[in-house]
C-alpha cells in the first residue's frame, strides 16, 4: 500500500511538474556560493561544531563540512548555516527514491 501511494505521488509529480520536495518531504538545500546554505525540511541537529554540521533528514542524514560554521538561524524545519562550506554529503540514505 505504501509503495502504491508513493507511485501515485511520483506520477502526480511528473504529470503536474511539481517539485519533489513538496510531495516527498525531501530536504531542499539552497546554497549561495560556499558562504551560506539554507536547508528546509530538516529533522533536527545531530552534531554541530566549527567544522561539521550533521542534520537529520527524512531520508537519512546530511553532513556539511567546512570551517567557521555558524548557525545563523534555526527553526523547527529550517536552518541557515554560514561559514566556509567545503562539502555537503548525504549519508545513510535508503537506496530507493
Amino acid at each position: 500500500m505504501r509503495r502504491f501511494a508513493r507511485k501515485i505521488r511520483k506520477m502526480t509529480a511528473e504529470l503536474l511538474d511539481l517539485p519533489q520536495d513538496v510531495l516527498f518531504d525531501l530536504p531542499r538545500v539552497t546554497m549561495i556560493g560556499n558562504a551560506q546554505v539554507h536547508i528546509e525540511n530538516h529533522r533536527g541537529v545531530l552534531h554541530f561544531s566549527n567544522e561539521r554540521l550533521n542534520l537529520s533528514i527524512s531520508i537519512g542524514e546530511l553532513e556539511l563540512t567546512g570551517s567557521d560554521l555558524v548557525i545563523r538561524a534555526i527553526w523547527p524545519d529550517e536552518v541557515i548555516v554560514e561559514g566556509k562550506i567545503s562539502k555537503i554529503q548525504y549519508m545513510r540514505t535508503e537506496g530507493s527514491n
Binding site: 554541530f48 561544531s49 566549527n50 560554521l69 555558524v70 548557525i71 545563523r72 538561524a73 534555526i74 527553526w75 523547527p76
Partner: peptide, 10 residues
C-alpha cells in the same frame, strides 16, 4: 518549541 535561536556558534 518555536524558540528563536540565531547566531549559534560552537
Amino acid at each position: 518549541k518555536n524558540v528563536e535561536i540565531w547566531d549559534m556558534r560552537y
